[in-house]
Write a protein that binds this DNA or RNA. Structure first.
Lengths: 335, 335
DNA sequence: ATGAAAGCGCTAACAT
DNA sequence: ATGTTAGCGCTTTCAT
């Protein structure tokens, strides 16, 4: 693969001149520029960002650290990040922490090694170590979604407390008096904020004695299990607030398994919307491809290919498709 | 920030020895190893992957190029890729092409510049240029989901034709005779494969005369519009096959807008499942955060911070939350 | 408007 | 088991 030197020789100039043409920096005569550009084309030269980064201390790379890209909330966020980054010729590395402090640390370390220019961080835990560590490695950080204590930082978020307050008032307005909240980890700001909003709404309605707060984790399983606990409470709540989308799903499933009707028996409200298209009825009959498994196998294959441990022959891996019949397909009665 | 040299001095060894300790390569006495490790810790040394990559020609970086990370099918795939990569200390850059050949080319270029070790590619178009270009830059490629013509390659995919064939047979088994297929671009292999499976199933049932094939794009809008066209056909089809999840959603919405009942009037089957949690009833009342916008604003803020064009003060951007009332919250009738 | 020299931080290749 | 030397490809710095 050609380097600046090759291009320089071809164009009869010094390497630095090639650099100047490519980066549009400094003064270059039109004639020189044209000769250099011609040489670049002829040789199919592609500048090496790695080498550039080593010298210039800018890698033109960002990282997005979320808890789980699979949560549609973070998926949308990721797409937003990538769109802007792409427009600016930045590249985005993404990482899933699964709310684990250990994974967050591991990734922070990887990102520092990689000299990314900046990190967009949804903090998995309440503490400021990651931010401090990244900063100590000259990496800018913008926090997303959750507040962090113990350190000042750029942050983009919403007003969870207020929204939670509003949701609870909505339930109170519907006549509910025993309202439970099922939320995430105590250490996460959004978890706490949503509880605070909940408590304030109850207090304002003189219902503070009815507080029913359940901390857990921001996933479906936790929502499911805590709902079963909640419903053993006596008297039972008539409404439940799930503090994120996955918890709300867990709630709905648990209530269904308990034969409790929503909303006739218990009202449910949630936080974070699910993609609009999930609200379509009827349920689709589909051919389901094993997307996650495909991703895993492909990455595995690629890594093996890279390490050279594969024979020359190209491989084709074909995975089975599962057919799932649901209500959208029914016997024909229309001729 | 400390370098190998600093660590080497501190430990009283040569830089290469530090390198050997860090990479677990070559023979190192226990005593030396311990001294080096101590020095690493004391200085808070973090190896520079960029410099390493420049020398060793391995960046430990993969790229995942999909059409749209927002499609849950690709989201799951991405998570699978990242899990494996993370376990191997590889990092993943991801890119959305939106089925655009131009974007694919642009990203291929960016990735070559960045010297990624390998690319996982869902080809946006049928042609082999991207693969050839990447290979000419010493980058390994594994193709995902779609076949490509004109070049041999590693590939991970499913048997679309067969699954499509099965779905159509299922409809035929339900008594449907006029079945339409709404699919994606003619240039995309999965699009063609699914049509082929459809055609074969019809042929086997002696229904070839009833073929109703509509090519468009793999998105909701295309599914929506083509459905309106399909339903102007006379006699109307009694079943429609949507060749991916977004198309199927478009179909369902169009039929709803046309006051056509699914499945009483028209059966619908799709390709690619939607996340399981999408099939819960009732519809949740939620507080919806503007995730995409948050991502965009945060990336923007970070890039500005990196470029130094921001004042010293940290910024806090708080976005509004939208409350969406649906059926899951109802008046209390349970005391 | 162009170039020469140096060096970013690391590791491959070759000693010892 | 450890060290020396050189150089990856680029851009900064300082000339001219």
């Amino acid at each position: 693969m050609p380097t600046v030197l090759d291009v320089a020789k071809r164009a009869g100039v010094a390497p630095i001149t090639v650099s100047r043409v490519i980066n549009n920096s400094g003064y270059i005569s039109l004639a020189t520029r044209e000769r250099v550009e011609a040489a670049v084309k002829e040789l199919g030269y592609v500048p090496n960002t790695i080498a550039r980064g080593l010298r210039s201390k800018r890698t033109h790379t960002l990282a997005l650290v979320v808890t789980d890209i699979t949560n549609p909330y973070f998926t949308s966020m990721a797409r937003g990040v990538e769109d802007v980054a792409g427009e600016c010729n930045y590249t985005v590395i993404y990482c899933n922490t699964d709310e684990s402090e250990a994974k967050e640390e591991k990734y922070a370390n990887m990102l520092a090694q990689r000299q990314v220019d900046g990190v967009l961080l949804v903090p998995s835990c309440g503490n400021e170590n990651t931010i401090k560590f990244l900063r100590s490695n000259d990496i800018d950080v913008v926090v997303l979604d959750r507040h962090i204590s113990g350190v000042e930082t750029d942050i983009v978020c919403t007003d969870s407390k207020n929204a939670a307050n509003y949701l609870i008032k909505l339930l109170i307005g519907l006549g509910h008096k025993r309202i439970a909240i099922i939320t995430g980890q105590k250490e996460v700001s959004t978890s706490v904020d949503r509880v605070t909003g909940y408590q304030q709404a109850l207090a304002e309605a003189g219902l503070s004695d009815n507080e029913l707060v359940f901390y857990g984790a921001f996933n479906e399983q936790s929502g499911y299990e805590l709902t079963k606990q909640v419903m053993m409470h006596s008297p039972k709540p008539t409404a439940i607030f799930g503090a994120n989308n996955f918890i709300a799903i867990g709630i709905i499933k648990a209530l269904r398994d308990l034969n409790i009707d929503v909303p006739a028996d218990v009202s449910v409200v949630g936080f974070d919307d699910l993609p609009e298209y999930m609200f379509i009825k009827p349920f689709l009959t589909v051919a389901k491809q094993p997307a996650y498994e495909m991703g895993r196998l492909a990455a595995d294959l690629l890594l093996k290919r890279i390490s050279g441990e594969l024979s020359e022959e190209y491989q084709e891996i074909v995975l089975p498709i599962e057919i799932i019949e649901r209500e959208s397909s029914a016997p024909n009665k229309n001729g």
